[in-house]
Design a protein around this nucleic acid. Sequence first.
DNA 1: GTCGGTTTTGACAATGGTTTTCATTTTGCC
DNA 2: GGCAAAATGAAAACCATTGTCAAAACCGAC
Lengths: 129, 129
Amino acid sequence: MSKSSDAVHAILRQSEGFRSAQDIFTKMRADGAKIGLTTVYRALQSLSDDGRVDMLRTDDGESVYRACESDVHHHHLVCRRCGHTVEVAGPDVERWAEAVGADYGFTEVTHTVEVFGTCPDCASAAGSR
Amino acid sequence: MSKSSDAVHAILRQSEGFRSAQDIFTKMRADGAKIGLTTVYRALQSLSDDGRVDMLRTDDGESVYRACESDVHHHHLVCRRCGHTVEVAGPDVERWAEAVGADYGFTEVTHTVEVFGTCPDCASAAGSR
DNA sequence: GTCGGTTTTGACAATGGTTTTCATTTTGCC
DNA sequence: GGCAAAATGAAAACCATTGTCAAAACCGAC
């Protein structure tokens, strides 16, 4: 459980934002790697278990992963149309989450915050809903 | 798009927390309603579009719905151990999300915020990871 | 080098929630 | 009643994810 995991991790580190498992698989195959989809999922799972990648679900139920750059905690502003991602820091949110948790006596509080929207480009590029 | 929707909405209002679509379907059938799974999904979708029910995804990708009691938008504080859920309002977060979106020119900004932690009960009840 | 056993891998099948399809039924309206 | 539009539901299609299982890679021991 290492060579493949490392390869997947590498792909993730080369990537900007979040990527789906299938996406990663496709890219790896395109890069010439001989890897199976199953293995990608397994790698992703163990990496996530080890806390080396972040995993979250998009609105349509797909899981997406990102290499964890644990030093700085930040969130993402994702364009729901083109997928363009901006990293945003949100000290206020961090504080709020902690406060809320503490308020109810919760410990080991973590939080997931994702902001979705339509980016300027896509907005001007038109659109029906 | 009304009789069924109303029926589904009624079930939801009778329920305490979140229920899955399949769950609702099963219950309605048990209650003697002649309704199809498809219709339940359709009803849920339109109710959700109209903002009359809240919809969210569990960690395993299942969609769950709940009658919207408060017209106010709120988030959840979930115990990662026992699943106990507390509803929390977060005006600050709402404002922050909007501000962040606006900052980058994003429109139609929505956000997902979930706070996880270990609730007091579970914390005292102990544990291994 | 090779033997034996353990781990990893990946093609493929299976799962399961959700969505689509499409023919039938119901509804609203004249 | 008659007709068209909307709603319905059974079954099929989807599709991301997970399970299966036999083959391949790995590894320490001989």
